[in-house]
C-alpha cells in the first residue's frame, strides 16, 4: 500500500517532504506531482540531473556530421559544376550542416524527453490518471 498526501500550498508540501526525507524515507520511494516544477523539492529529494543533454548532444553532432556528409555525398554522386565553384564548397554546406544540427538536436531532444519521461504514457492516455487539480501531491511507495 502506498501513502499519499495532498497540499494546497507549496510551503506545506515542502515541509512535509522535508519531514519525510529527514524521517529516513528513501527519496526513491517518494513521488511528487506538482502543478509546476518545484526546484526546492528536487533539492530535498536529490533528484538526478536529467540525462537529456546526452540526447541533445548526440542529435546535434549527428546533424552536424550528417549535414556535411550528405551534402558532400550528393555532389560526389553526380558531380555538377555550378557558378564556377568547386564541387565541395564548404561555406554553403555549412548552412545545411548548421540547420541539420539544430533540427536533429531539437528532434532528438524531444525524443529523449519522451523516452526519459516515459511519455506518451499509454496507460494514462487510455485511462486518464487521477487528477489532483492544482494540489501538490506526495506519494510514498509502500513495501509490497
Amino acid at each position: 500500500m502506498s501513502k499519499q498526501w495532498m497540499f494546497d500550498e507549496k510551503a506545506d508540501f515542502l515541509a512535509k517532504l522535508r519531514e519525510l526525507v529527514d524521517g529516513g524515507v528513501d527519496p526513491h520511494d517518494l513521488e511528487t506531482m506538482t502543478p509546476f516544477p518545484v526546484h526546492e523539492a528536487d533539492h530535498i529529494l536529490h533528484t538526478r540531473t536529467s540525462r537529456l543533454r546526452f540526447f541533445t548532444l548526440a542529435g546535434t553532432l549527428t546533424g552536424l556530421i550528417a549535414g556535411f556528409a550528405f551534402t558532400i555525398f550528393t555532389v560526389m554522386d553526380w558531380p555538377l559544376i555550378t557558378g564556377g565553384k568547386p564541387l565541395i564548397s564548404l561555406p554553403p554546406f555549412l548552412v545545411i550542416a548548421f540547420e541539420l544540427t539544430i533540427l536533429l538536436g531539437g528532434i532528438l531532444s524531444f525524443v529523449g524527453f519522451l523516452a526519459l519521461a516515459r511519455l506518451p504514457s499509454v496507460k494514462n492516455v487510455l485511462q486518464p490518471p487521477k487528477e489532483y487539480g492544482n494540489r501538490f501531491v506526495i506519494q510514498q511507495r509502500g513495501e509490497e
Binding site: 513521488e31 511528487t32 506531482m33 506538482t34 502543478p35 509546476f36 516544477p37 518545484v38 523539492a41 528536487d42 529529494l45 533528484t47 538526478r48 540531473t49 536529467s50 537529456l52 543533454r53 531532444s109 524531444f110 529523449g112 524527453f113 519522451l114 526519459l116 519521461a117 511519455l119 506518451p120 504514457s121 499509454v122 496507460k123 494514462n124 492516455v125 490518471p129
Partner: peptide, 16 residues
Amino acid sequence: LGWRGTRYQWEHYGKL
C-alpha cells in the same frame, strides 16, 4: 501524452 507532473517529468521537461 498522459502528463502527470511528476518530479522526473518536470526535471526532463525543464531541461528539454
